[in-house]
Deep mutational scan, measured.
Amino acid sequence: NITAAIYDEIQQEMKRAKVSQALFAKVAANKSQGWLCELLRWKENPSPENRTLWENLCTIRRFLNLPQHERDVIY
């Protein structure tokens, strides 16, 4: 289940792992930094009809659900 909290989790994970938006986007969703920036802007007004947005957030959720040491190896 995806909630608005995922946006904060993304920010916290980037700080914790000391990774850039570009690197996080690449490893978590195989996307660009610009894409992640755009995604983070949706926090203010996520559209329930935007299926692509929710699919991408689900992809990021799966990455964030990995154990921390696995995420660190991927970075």
Rank of each mutant, 00 (worst) to 15 (best):
N1G: 01
A5I: 15
A5R: 13
I6Q: 02
Y7P: 01
Y7M: 04
D8S: 12
D8T: 15
E9M: 13
Q11G: 06
Q12M: 06
E13S: 00
M14G: 03
K15H: 15
K15A: 14
R16K: 15
R16A: 07
R16L: 08
A17R: 09
A17P: 02
K18Q: 13
K18P: 15
V19M: 04
V19H: 03
S20F: 06
S20T: 07
S20E: 08
A22P: 15
L23F: 06
L23S: 11
F24I: 04
A25F: 03
A25Q: 08
V27K: 09
V27L: 11
A28C: 12
A29T: 03
N30Q: 07
N30C: 09
S32T: 14
S32D: 06
S32C: 06
Q33C: 07
Q33S: 06
Q33P: 10
Q33F: 02
Q33Y: 13
G34E: 12
L36C: 14
E38Q: 05
E38A: 11
L39Q: 07
L39A: 13
L40T: 10
W42T: 04
W42Q: 13
W42C: 04
K43A: 07
K43C: 01
K43S: 05
K43D: 02
E44T: 07
E44S: 13
E44R: 12
E44K: 10
P46M: 08
P46T: 03
S47K: 12
P48S: 11
P48C: 05
N50C: 07
R51D: 15
T52L: 10
E55M: 03
C58G: 11
C58M: 04
C58W: 13
T59I: 10
I60R: 00
I60G: 00
I60T: 08
R61T: 08
R61L: 13
R62H: 13
F63I: 02
F63Y: 04
L64F: 09
L64V: 03
L64Y: 00
L64D: 00
L64W: 00
N65P: 00
N65E: 09
L66W: 06
P67G: 07
P67T: 02
P67N: 15
Q68E: 04
H69G: 08
H69W: 03
E70C: 01
E70G: 02
R71Y: 00
D72T: 04
V73Y: 08
V73F: 10
I74S: 01
I74Q: 04
I74L: 09
Y75E: 01
Y75M: 14
Y75R: 08
